[in-house]
Amino acid sequence: MAGDSRASRSPRRRRVEADATGEQLPIGTLCGRSVLVRLGEGCRLFELRRDRCFGSKAGGLDSWLLSLEEALFLMSEMQVLEVDVSDSPRKMASSSEAFFRECCKLVPAFPQRYAAYRHYRLVGWVVRPDALKFGADFLLYDGRQDEVHAEYAVIIANSSLLWKDVVMASRLEQTVAKDLLLVSFPELPLPEPTAAVSLPEFLSSPHAQVTELAVRRWNQHAQ
């Protein structure tokens, strides 16, 4: 195996813009580790879901399921969604700050998962969280999911990841014509999930600094 600090090529960069139409934002409902949201045709989020491949159809329902990373990105970066995390329908939908803290309670590794997700979305990749069958955390597409194949399978590495696991993952990705991309973060203790750490503070801290390593098979030169 050989490590390459850069991906094979960069995706087409796409500008990420916030919704400034003034329309009423859809409100999603936190369901376990997903967010359920009903979308009407013509709203900005409906168009983003179609064009940028956010979420997946909820079977038997006229609704869409978003991962926690997708929902927070749509809230904080795109400003096209609100998420209600309260038990009472009378309460206002949460801010991205409150939702971020809730996600940290649900998933201890969420802060860095979101940092990785956000990093790839902002540089133009379509990032899909449904990568478990490939033994990965995310899949990266340089275009619509129904038009191109995923180019990279992303694994968020930590101190418990063994090299033999990397080798096995790389072989698995090769069988489905994907490169393996390892993403790591500085080995620093994360703040407690209940701590009042704002999302901007986290994203600007060393905790969210992304390091990438592309893993490919090394073919020895024939003698």
Rank of each mutant, 00 (worst) to 15 (best):
E17Q: 13
E41V: 07
R38I: 10
F100V: 06
R171S: 11
V215L: 10
Q174Y: 08
K178M: 15
F202G: 04
L188A: 03
M92K: 12
F73S: 06
M92E: 15
D179K: 11
F138K: 03
W125S: 02
K133S: 14
A150W: 02
L140P: 00
E147W: 04
R101V: 08
L190C: 04
R216P: 00
W218N: 12
P193G: 05
A177K: 14
G3V: 07
D146I: 01
L48H: 09
D130E: 15
D142Y: 01
R6C: 09
P129T: 10
L188W: 01
D4V: 09
E187W: 03
V83F: 05
Y152D: 02
G3H: 07
D4C: 10
R121A: 09
F99R: 07
L30S: 07
M78V: 15
R13N: 07
L25R: 15
G3R: 11
L61A: 14
F134D: 10
A157G: 03
V85N: 09
G60L: 07
P189K: 05
L25C: 07
F202Y: 14
Q174S: 11
Y141E: 00
L39Y: 01
R144D: 05
R216W: 00
D51P: 00
Y120T: 03
A71E: 07
L66H: 03
S198A: 11
V16D: 10
D130C: 01
A131Y: 01
R216G: 02
L140F: 01
G59Y: 12
V107P: 00
P189D: 06
L162D: 06
G59S: 14
L72Y: 05
L199W: 02
F99W: 08
Y141H: 13
S56Y: 04
W64C: 15
E212T: 11
E173M: 14
R38D: 10
D87Q: 10
L161P: 01
T29W: 05
H149E: 15
L180Q: 03
P111S: 03
H119F: 14
R38A: 12
R6Q: 14
V16Q: 12
L213Y: 00
E41C: 06
L39F: 01
T194Y: 08
Q209N: 08
S160Y: 06
